[in-house]
Design a protein around this nucleic acid. Structure first.
Lengths: 323, 323
DNA sequence: ATTATCTAGACAAAAAATAGACAGATACCT
DNA sequence: AGGTATCTGTCTATTTTTTGTCTAGATAAT
């Protein structure tokens, strides 16, 4: 099958080696011996390419090309494997003394945000997370930080990009590091936002609170249509739904969307969380959802729901079986 | 059946090749042998057009026309396939020793995605990350996984929510865990996408490659306006910019946006990365940016740029001081 | 008359080859 | 440590080949 011969350009692109290097390796170490076409141009086989790719990787790992150029494919693959496993041993996490207060994290974060230095910011977050735990990380560091960045943005000291940057990182950090709890959680809660809603950071905050209240949050992101919400709710066997609404977005469709959701999910409690849900009071009442204005109310509602479910654990998903 | 014959003008329009080129390819390499009408004009069949389109794509991809002109349709399709897939899989080897465990991660991930179980998926990712390292995690697990999920989505076995779910988690995971290198990296590269572009996962993939080539990626997300890009570029003292473009999005504004960026950032090299930048060839050439088609090319460009910078380290940010 | 197409040849940019040089690392040897 | 030698990726200069484009003159179509 390897009838196809490749010109040096293609080899270069596939291997990431410059044509100069490829020729040098041939000239100096006979790493590959491509045949020539009638016109003197090199024509490489698939095996040549494979070998060059291996060589490229191994040399980037620190070996000298002269030592390995003459090896055959199998030896090279063995080599790459042993090199690979050797690097694993190296990367062990250093023990970090728990220094510093939240204030230091804050200042360090600001600096990292100013420089758009993601790795610095993340390592700060990691340390803070270890020291403070998820909830306090959010309340004591993230919240004031995002507040501060938004203020600075408004007066022009920081840029929109920097706000996006930090929000994105916080979001990802929470998403990846929030679910570290080892404790057994049985009750699941679906956290999402209907179509045209986008405040992901806030939603992740709710995830944390839920986890803190012994609920297992199922977070499926925002801008989710009614039937996707239904599907996720049934699929993950949640016993509660929290919809996050954000009045800043253009939300003329929200009332209708809420009605659609309710028509699909009839039996269960649905909480609506948002800073200013009073705009939608009427629809909320009409659809029989419970509006939640702040974290305290959320905690109360979560506990109430938990007791309710513990009381009648079986009935909840009766509906999903009719499908 | 295929009685319809096409004049050269039509062929030119359909293939994107100039009539001159089409004739030259026939004269020099007998790429196609159109019959002539009574008047001596060339009349091309649908198959001719198909072949010319394939030839066009392959030559754009770096092969020489003289090498491929005489191949038949099937060989050409194989070739385009292998070149294409080479850009995707690229670094992954056919038989890696860890295939067994990767397979387990894969199956476990599918299950977690089905259940929308974020914590399970993340802990799988974490283990895989430790075992494979960032690059192989992406190439051997994430790429096939996302491919599979998208396929399942298309045939309806998985839902849109589940695709969003896994993409979001992968994105966050990469963002948080990619920058773990301890090595000293001096050169920074800004990775972003202009307004109305959104393929974040791909961008994070580029971040990994950059890191692998000893560049420090500054990732500021997508849909960034020209002046925000300028700001980030100066603020973080990058010496290189990579713009990721995604032709799927509605991108009628892209050419103008590129011009705007170039007008703000005159002196430095700007790379454009995307699967099909051909569409924008003209603007790319006009703005003097370098188009990058695949990871191999990116590696080359990064190395070249690094050498360029090492050679003249001071001149680079002279411009930002005139402000 | 204008436009499109054809042939044949010419041209310049790009790509590839060879040989040699150079400079930053790395290794080796006092 | 310090000096020397080697390694190695890149670059230069020059030649040859490839290849897209252009020109000019002729012919046919609209």
């Amino acid at each position: 099958m390897s009838e196809t011969k490749h010109p040096i350009q293609i080899v270069s692109r596939r291997t990431g080696l410059s044509p100069d290097v490829i020729r040098a390796w041939e000239r100096r170490y006979k790493a590959v011996k491509p045949n020539r076409g009638a016109n003197g141009r090199r024509l490489y086989t698939d095996n040549d390419i494979k070998k060059l790719m291996l060589l490229q990787r191994i040399t980037r790992g620190g070996r000298r090309i002269s030592d390995i150029a003459k090896l055959n494919l199998n030896s090279l693959e063995d080599l790459i494997e042993s090199d690979q496993s050797a690097t694993f041993v190296q990367t062990s996490l250093a023990n970090r003394p728990s220094t510093g207060s939240v204030m230091e994290y804050f200042d360090g974060s600001i600096e990292a945000i100013r420089d758009l230095d993601a790795s610095k910011l993340i390592s700060l977050f990691k340390i803070a997370h270890q020291e403070l735990g998820a909830v306090f990380l959010l309340e004591d560091l993230f919240s004031p930080l995002i507040q501060h960045v938004r203020d600075e943005c408004r007066i022009g000291t920081l840029r929109q990009t920097q706000e996006k940057f930090v929000v994105e990182l916080m979001k990802s950090f929470l998403l990846i590091n929030s679910s570290n709890t080892k404790k057994q959680i049985k009750n699941k809660v679906l956290i999402t936002a209907p179509i045209s809603q986008n405040d992901n950071l806030n939603m992740l905050r709710l995830c944390l609170v839920c986890e803190d209240s012994d609920w297992m949050p199922i977070y499926i992101g925002s801008s989710i249509s009614a039937d996707e919400i239904l599907f996720s709710y049934e699929q993950s066997k949640c016993s509660l739904i929290i919809l996050v609404v954000d009045p800043n977005e253009n939300s003329q469709f929200l009332p209708n969307e809420l009605r659609k959701i309710r028509s699909l999910i009839k039996d269960n409690e649905i909480l609506i969380y948002g800073d200013s849900i009073y705009y939608y009071q009427d629809v909320v009442k009409e659809t029989g959802m419970s509006s939640i204005n702040n974290i305290g109310e959320l905690r109360l509602a979560l506990n109430r729901a938990k007791n309710l479910i513990d009381f009648r654990p079986i009935i909840l998903h009766a509906k999903s079986e009719n499908n």
